[in-house]
Write a protein that binds this DNA or RNA. Structure first.
Lengths: 218, 218
DNA sequence: AACACGGCGACTGTAAACAGTCGACCCCTG
DNA sequence: CAGGGGTCGACTGTTTACAGTCGCCGTGTT
């Protein structure tokens, strides 16, 4: 039963994880605006947790690049300019290109294709949902792609970047983000993977990323 | 003066940073062998720091992939098998390919070439040093390459992977690691960047990574 | 002998207290 | 009025103490 609960993601989350999630949401939603100075006592009071627990969460956030350290350990919400967004998307493109290429090289891609198609359906289902839901389903597709490679390191690296990606979308303005989630584009990616042509898949990903980044910094 | 001290890296390191460095060294040197269960009270006593401070360091280590979490927050030193090493090197190759490609696209690469050549000279100087020094100078070359792109996100991602890379080298056995640092290979990389041919540079990096990974898992 | 149960020890999760440091502001002085 | 010095307040760095939980082991029962 315990195992089932774990598999279903129902296990009690530690306060640290809750705090981490809450802070991520607060930052990517803009509740904590870029450049905002983060005061530990303030946050611990807001989240109703102790500073020690909070600090652990902040370390992870720091590692994810959502908060940056200033003088004497002062933390503030990271501020992204256009160049940084392009840089983030360059790295994202590199990682997802690897993912696509890896998937192309799998002998049996049926299961992969199926999972990706399911993720796209989830995106379609969210088409008329809130913006947050649409972004979420979009990221879920890409995360799934990385996960399906079976390369844990790749998945881990992508997830470390995920916060920055979310922030890019947030920072570039919410309306702009909408165009970033066309279902067609994602179908192209799946189709490319289905053919098994690694070069094609890589180029499709790269174009997808380039256009997404272009929209965000336009 | 304070700025100078900072630039020279002379600023007082916090206990957390010292602990982090110590733990990284302990793990990559094998003092804490893979699979080893990490007990907080044990480590805090060894390092002469409090558990709270230690836990912050452990969070970072976890994010870097050097330690993995088991049931109920139990941490242990990550165990790498051959597949994982290949996976790590796949991601490394993707990141460094991006770095090389980015450098190729710079209009003025003279400064870059100079810095890389200097890094190679440092490697040559370390040829007859200890194994640790050779590995260090090797990694320094690649880190420099990432840094010179000016893409902070890329550098950050690479540094997040650095611990895993070190662990790969350690895990695969120390003797094998030696061949991993041929100066010639690195000269090839610099030469490729100098030509400005992004495809050539990318392929050179990829070959370098492939052969390195092949040696490690042989 | 097998099994259920209860106490115990080992660890992690969390909180609260203590210490040190830097900057701002005010007062005092020339 | 300008400058020096000192006090105060706001934070972060670090430690110590407390609570909860799980597994182990011995014990008693059948």
């Amino acid at each position: 039963m315990a195992a089932t609960a774990t598999l279903l993601g129902l296990e009690k989350k530690s306060l640290r994880e809750q705090a981490l999630a809450a802070l991520r949401t607060a930052i990517t939603s803009g509740a904590l605006e870029p450049g905002r100075h983060l005061v530990e006592t303030e946050l611990s009071e807001m989240l109703q947790i102790s500073r020690g627990t909070l600090r652990e969460a902040l370390r992870q956030l720091e590692q994810e690049g959502l908060v940056s350290a200033g003088a004497r350990g002062r933390l503030s919400v990271r501020h992204l300019d256009a160049k940084e967004i392009r840089d983030i998307y360059s790295v994202r493109a590199a990682l997802e290109s690897l993912a696509a290429r890896t998937l192309c090289e799998l002998p049996d891609r049926q299961h992969v294709i199926g999972s990706l198609r399911a993720a796209i359906q989830a995106m379609e289902a969210a088409t008329h949902g809130t913006l947050e839901e649409r972004v979420e389903s979009d990221l879920e597709f890409h995360r799934t792609m990385c996960r399906l490679t079976g390369n844990e390191t790749l998945l881990h690296s992508w997830e470390s970047l995920e916060g920055s990606i979310r922030m890019s979308i947030m920072f570039a303005g919410l309306e702009k983000g909408v165009r970033n989630m066309s279902v067609d584009r994602h179908n192209d990616i799946v189709a490319a993977i289905e053919t098994g042509d690694a070069t094609l898949a890589r180029n499709t990903i790269r174009e997808h990323m380039d256009s997404a980044a272009a929209v965000l910094v336009a």
